[in-house]
Design a protein around this nucleic acid. Structure first.
Lengths: 214, 214
DNA sequence: GCGCCGATGTGTACACTGTCCACTACCTAG
DNA sequence: CTAGGTAGTGGACAGTGTACACATCGGCGC
């Protein structure tokens, strides 16, 4: 007899096992279709098969749950970026590879925004801070956060000689801001109605601009 | 005896006069300190001295009010941009002036985000569409929307010869995305803790990048 | 002048939310 | 075996969005 069976027999839904994780998972699911506003404590507990107040054993309030879901979403963004990088194999040319690495960060980021607008909005709906940009809670399966993936790409660019060290400092901000802005404008800003090819085109031009202007 | 006095005498708060406008104004005030989430119908009606349901004569639901407030916020952003432009007088050199004009759009935009983060967030919390980016509801006192101010600056850049016409098409998207991203990251993204001088510096470098990479 | 009608606002009511409090069932260290 | 911590339940309350029925005013045609 498995633990699950014993649990569901001797008590109704008493000890959940991983309620915290279940609530976050439910939150991600709600965010997926409705953005941060759709994250609702009572609904999350309902989906986890537990009473509303059980959530307060794991989260101080709704904002705490939202924050946890938001962090998870950032991790998913990191995964999407790494997926994009895996899809673009290296060529052996250090400069070309470094530039491609930066480009794939942008491509993955925009892809995530377009494929999962609700999660993307949720990821950035919580006030953040540079000190926490490296928090493991925001990391994907590989253990790296989106911010770290970007930093690594910029480091590689400097190592390859494609980016003068003098321009390296704070380059994260420029690259990130640029791509982040496009993501936002595409999912609920004025660029929303654009066709996919138009967005692809704008993305390419934007990444060209970063490549050239960094 | 003024109209106001007669009104407040013969009836409690019956015919308001401009309830729609009052609700939007209250919404802007709430958004200013709490962002879009702080916009609450009941509180708005309270501030307007009217019963909760009165709002439904002017707005279909909360989202409709949010949208109206959001449009108003965009108009305020336009005002801030024009204020920035007024603060940078032209020099007479067509190319320099055109580049400055574009730069002031960015400066005003970022300034608005930093000075009024709640309004900035509210302005972009409502899904929008390119067809509506020119709606007069989003215009500032001069009648122009932020998008139009940006377009005008880009046109001037082409007219002056600083921007090849071939690069003009969709340049709005690139410029806007870049600056918008910085705005977002600065107010609740990872760039939040940065000191003012650091943000100024990043802004300058970002605008340089646009200037160079467009 | 009169009566009617649409626009505007009021009151009541319901479902739903976040969150507080007191309570209970279980697990584990001593 | 017992004491205390942990995880979950149940009930309650204030605040929210919103539907429905009603009241009141201003302006219109007659």
């Amino acid at each position: 007899m498995s633990d699950d069976e014993r649990a569901s027999q001797s008590r109704t839904t008493y000890r959940h096992g991983d309620l915290r994780g279940a609530l976050i998972a439910a939150g991600v699911e709600m965010a997926r279709e409705g953005g941060p506003r759709a994250i609702v404590i009572r609904e999350a507990t309902r989906r986890a098969g537990v009473s509303p107040n059980a959530a307060y054993r794991h989260f101080a309030d709704r904002d705490a749950l939202l924050k946890a879901v938001s962090d998870t979403c950032l991790g998913l963004a990191a995964d999407r970026i790494e997926q994009e990088q895996a899809a673009h194999p290296t060529t052996g040319d250090a400069v070309a590879d470094a530039r491609l690495q930066l480009r794939t960060v942008g491509l993955g980021y925009i892809a995530f925004a377009r494929e999962e607008p609700g999660l993307f909005r949720t990821a950035f709906s919580v006030p953040d801070d540079l000190r926490q940009a490296l928090s493991p809670a925001k990391a994907g399966v590989s253990g790296l956060t989106p911010f770290q993936l970007l930093s690594l790409a910029l480091d590689a660019l400097v190592d390859s000689g494609a980016l003068p060290p003098a321009r390296r400092e704070n380059a994260e901000f420029l690259a990130w801001a640029t791509v982040h802005g496009l993501g936002m404008l595409v999912i609920d800003g004025p660029l929303r109605g654009l066709t996919d090819p138009m967005i692809d085109f704008a993305t390419e031009r934007l990444l060209d601009m970063v490549d050239r202007g960094l």
